[in-house]
Structures are given as C-alpha cells and as structure tokens.
Design a protein around this nucleic acid. Structure first.
Length: 513
RNA sequence: GGCGUUAUGGUGUAACUGGUUAACACGCCGCCCUCUCAAGGCGGAGAGUCCGGGUUCGAGCCCCGGUAACGCUACCA
C-alpha cells in the first residue's frame, strides 16, 4: 500500500513507555449501511496508530446472525477506503493474526469458553429466551433492576445432565464474583469502579454457538495483540465484564480510551431518525471525504487551535484553525486534549466545511469531482432509460430528472395530500411508508409488494400510495417510474429525503396550529 | 428504578501550573463589494462558564453538596 510520506510518523510521534508495538482496531458490525460513528472511531484509531508507528486493524464483528446484512461488509470496506482510512490488517488484506471475521473464528471462541468453564469462571445456563423475558418483565413490574437471577449458577452435574437429556439448548454465562468490585482505568477519565452488584452474569456464548460481543471482543483483542482499545463511550458500562474476562484468562489488560458519543441536535446518541447517518449518503450527496474527515476531527476537539504566533508565522487567517487535512491531524491531533462532552453532529458546519473544500479545488478538479459523483457515467446511464420514452428533445432531460440532482425537494401540501385525506393522515401514512422502505432492500421485486402490502393494510389505494411517495421523492405528480427512480436515487438518499420531508411538514403543521 | 459518564453563547471548541472587559470558527443580523446569488471584506447581537455553598486578594479552572443531560441496564453490537 503506497502511502504519502506525510503519513509516516513525523517529529510529533509520541514515544510510548512500552516496547510492545502499538496495535489498535475498529470492529464494525455488518448490520446495514456503514455508519458515521464507525468513521469517527475509525479516524481516531487510525490517527492513534499512525502517530505511533502502530498498526490499524479492521475486524468484522459478525456474530449476530439475526441482524446480519450480506452486502454490509463490502459497503463498510468501500466507505472507509473512500474516506482514506486504510487498514493494515483485515479480512480483505489479510495479516498475521487472522482470520479477521469473527464468524470464521467460532472454533477459537469455543475453546476459550471451555477454558472458562473448566476454571469455574463461567457456567452453563439453560433458561429459554422466553423464560428470561418473563423473568425480566416481572422484575421490572416489581420495580427491581432487570438482571439475571443466577438460578443456574450452581447447577449440580445431575441437573445439568437432566437439562441436556431434555435437549435444552444452553448458553454460557460469565460468573461474576458475588462480592467486591472491578476497577479499571480510562485514559481520558481516570479510574472507574463498578461494584459487582451492578455487573450482570453476561451471556458469553449464545445458544446458536456464536459468541457475544463481550467474549469475542476480549478474545480477539488479546489474540490480535491489541494494545489500545479506542471505542465509543457507550462501552464504559460493559468494560468491567471485559476486565473480568481478561483476568479470568490471565491476560494483560489493554489501555481503554472511551470517546464521546456523536449526538443529534437534542443531545441524544446520533441516530438515523434525526440525522443522516449512512456514509453512503454523504458520498452520494457530494460531500468530499477530506471534508467529512476534517469535520469528524473537529468533534471532540483533539486538534488544538493554532496559537496567534503560529497564525502570524503562517500568514494564514484565523479561521483556518478549523480546517485541516488528514496528514495535519496525524501531526497535531492530541488524544489528551479530547473534550468529553458529547459533540453535536452539526450538518450546517459540515456543509460550510465542504463548501470550503469545494472552493479550494482547481476548476479542473472541481469538474472531475462532479463527473465522479452527481454526473458520473454510471449514474447517468441508470437514469437515461427511465426517461428515454418520455421526452421529445434531449433538453427535456433536465426537467424530467431534476430531482435526481437536487439536495432537497419539498412539495406543497396541495401536491402531496390526496383528495379526501387530511394532511395529518397523509403524514402518518408517509411515516409508515418510511418504516417499510427502511426494512426493505431496494429492488423492484421487494419494493413493490412491500409497499402494496402496506397500502392494503392501511386502506390506501395503490394510486394514492404511490403518488404520495412520488411527491415526496420528486416534488411533483409526474415523474419517471417511481420504483426505478427510488432504486437509482439510492436507499440512503431516498430515506433521508423522506425523513426530512416528514420532519419539515410536521414542523410546518405545528406552526400553523 | 439501578449503575456509569458528562456539563463554557444556538453548535464545535479556546482560555499556560487559579490572575485583567471569557477567545476562535459555524450559524444569525447589518453594512460594503456586485447585473443576481454565492464567495469575500467590515461590523454587531448572543454565554458570565449547570445550580448552591466553600477555599483564596482573586475561580470556568481547586473542595463539598445538588441538578440536568446522555449512555448502559438483551442469547444487539
């Protein structure tokens, strides 16, 4: 892999106190579109590795077969490469500690689980999912904290044999010590303690034979010689379980760095409901990877603002302080500076930044960027057949297809509300359509029946059903074929357009009242 | 509910080991430039640093006590 010289550890390289080479990893789950959160944590890990001449590993965390999406893994690869976050080891590039896909490591997990069973750090538990669910409900009803009650912690050999004879499937759980506490150090926050009263007997091996995150993550991090676990803050609460596992195996602990969570405007954890969260969306909407990376680098504030002397020395203007490249981040990004409050992912500022990058392009580079994205041959080639029979001069192509090239369309209520329907009913139905589209792969064979099924359930005639969707997607009542348009425009952008539409209309309706 | 984390303008961040009227960027408003719109230039409004105590000549920075937000609380990650 050819890397620009600037990416090599420069004078700012941080000396580490250990002789062991630094190794970090990201472990995305292939459950859907690649997520901005993955890019954020990916960037941070990448920077950390590059600053210390370490290795950046990509591991695919595909142990949940119920949420597995087969196309997801490739999309993750593509999105990370688009951003320029190249990994040194991973499922597609190999490496000395493979395999890098957890579904290919089940034998390893089984062996390790057996070790825990043998050493008494784990035990088999035979409750069914339904029984556990019932237990949880009654605990919540009784206002008790929902926790595993430990019923099978001390089964006798005879009891275990009986359950097995019954053919009951088992899970393996971590045997958390009844007393005491587990403490660990977070590199950004200092010591964190958890009383064992508050650490559940986590399932380590599911009844389908796959490990849970907790087990797989610890085993793999150890086997892959990961020295620094840089991950999102949401993992703090489960870190004691991980620490307990390291100890049970007798392994050395990695350093833990928990990064603040990216937030929606209302400060909740970033989610697709309130923010475009798919990296596909950003790529297809014409954001430049450098701008996205730059923006992500702003989140958490690891880049010091330049001092006045530096500004004078460089002769640059003050606002350049928010603009920096990946090599500059490698040089200057300081993990100890990261501020812990959850940063709001503010699309407005991202757009400004992207505009700065666009303006900085040479005319030729700008033209090439256009040709590579919104006016790519590939895109045009897919749109062309949708309009060929519908236009009389080639110039009409523009009118017919404008919505394919817009960032936003916003039809008026006269356009999208069917006769005999109220605005409110219509928006409610649009929300139903959105839910269906989210759950459906974007192919004609899948989309059509799914939408028709919804229409039948809610008693919306096909005509009104499709017309509403057409209005939302295209902004008008006449357009190329709806389903094909949806598919070509793409799932990420289509869903975003719908969400924005519903949000905006609800807000409008509220102000009218 | 329990546990954990966090807390500086609307948003992202600054403020060296406590030291002058809390700084920069985005956004917002106004003016200039201009055929328009952007961009660019200039200017402005907007926080007294979550709240309450304390230490100190002096606190956004230190101590104590609250509050709020967020996260976790799954055979999901």
């Amino acid at each position: 892999m050819a890397r620009p010289a600037t990416l090599e550890p420069g004078p700012m390289t941080i000396a580490t106190d250990t002789a062991t080479p630094i190794r970090v990893r990201i472990a995305p789950s292939p459950t859907g579109d690649p997520h901005v959160g993955t890019a954020y944590i990916g960037l941070l890990n990448f920077l950390y590795a590059r600053q210390r001449a370490g290795k950046f590993v990509l591991r695919i965390e595909d142990t949940d077969r119920t949420r597995f999406v087969s196309t997801s893994e490739q999309m993750i690869f593509d999105a990370l490469r688009w951003l320029g976050l190249e990994w040194d080891e991973g499922p597609d590039v190999g490496g000395p500690y493979g395999p890098y896909r957890q579904s290919e490591r089940t034998e390893i997990y089984r062996e390790h689980v057996q070790r825990l069973l043998d050493s008494g750090h784990a035990y088999r538990s035979f409750e069914t999912a339904e029984e556990l669910e019932a237990m949880r409900r009654s605990q919540i009803a009784a206002k008790l904290p929902p926790r595993y009650n430990g019923a099978h912690r001390e089964l006798t050999a005879a009891q275990i044999a009986a359950f097995e004879a019954e053919g009951r499937p088992a899970v393996v759980r971590l045997k958390v010590p009844a007393e005491g506490e587990t403490a660990f150090r977070d590199e950004l926050r200092g010591a964190i303690n958890f009383s064992h009263n508050n650490v559940d007997d986590q399932v380590l091996l599911k009844s389908d034979g796959f490990p849970t995150y907790h087990l797989a993550n610890v085993v793999d991090d150890h086997l892959m010689r990961i020295t620094d676990v840089i991950r999102a803050e949401e993992w703090i609460s489960s870190t004691p379980k991980h620490v307990l596992l390291y100890k049970a195996f007798g392994w050395e602990l990695p350093r833990f760095w928990h990064m603040p969570l990216l937030r929606n405007i209302d400060k909740s954890k970033i989610s697709k409901r309130k923010n475009p969260v798919s990296l596909i969306y950003y790529r297809e909407s014409g954001f430049l990877p450098q701008a996205v990376l730059n923006f992500l680098g702003l989140m958490g504030g690891g880049m010091a603002q330049p001092s006045e002397e530096e500004i004078v020395a460089k002769g640059s203007s003050l606002k350049q302080g928010d603009i920096f490249s990946l090599p500059q981040m490698i040089e200057k990004f300081d993990f100890k500076r990261i501020s812990l409050g959850g940063p709001v992912f503010d699309l407005t500022k991202l757009k400004w930044l992207n505009g700065e990058y666009l303006r900085a392009l040479s005319p030729e580079a700008f033209f090439q960027a256009l040709r590579a994205t919104v006016f790519s041959d590939e895109y045009l080639r897919r749109i062309a057949p949708l309009v060929q029979t519908r236009i009389e001069t080639l110039a009409q192509f523009g009118e017919m297809t404008d919505f394919f090239f817009k960032d936003d369309v916003m039809p008026a209520p006269e356009v999208f509300v069917p006769k005999k329907r109220t605005l409110e009913e219509t928006l409610d139905f649009a929300a139903e359509q959105l839910a269906v589209l989210e759950a459906t792969p974007f192919t004609a064979e899948e989309l059509e029946p799914a939408l028709k099924k919804l229409g039948a359930e809610k008693e919306w005639p096909v005509k009104d059903n499709f017309m509403l969707l057409r209005a939302i997607l295209t902004g008008r009542t006449a357009s190329p074929p709806l389903l094909e348009s949806l598919i070509v425009f793409g799932k990420a952008r289509s869903l975003d357009r719908m969400r924005r539409f519903i949000d905006a209309q609800k807000r409008l309706a509220a102000t009218r009242r």
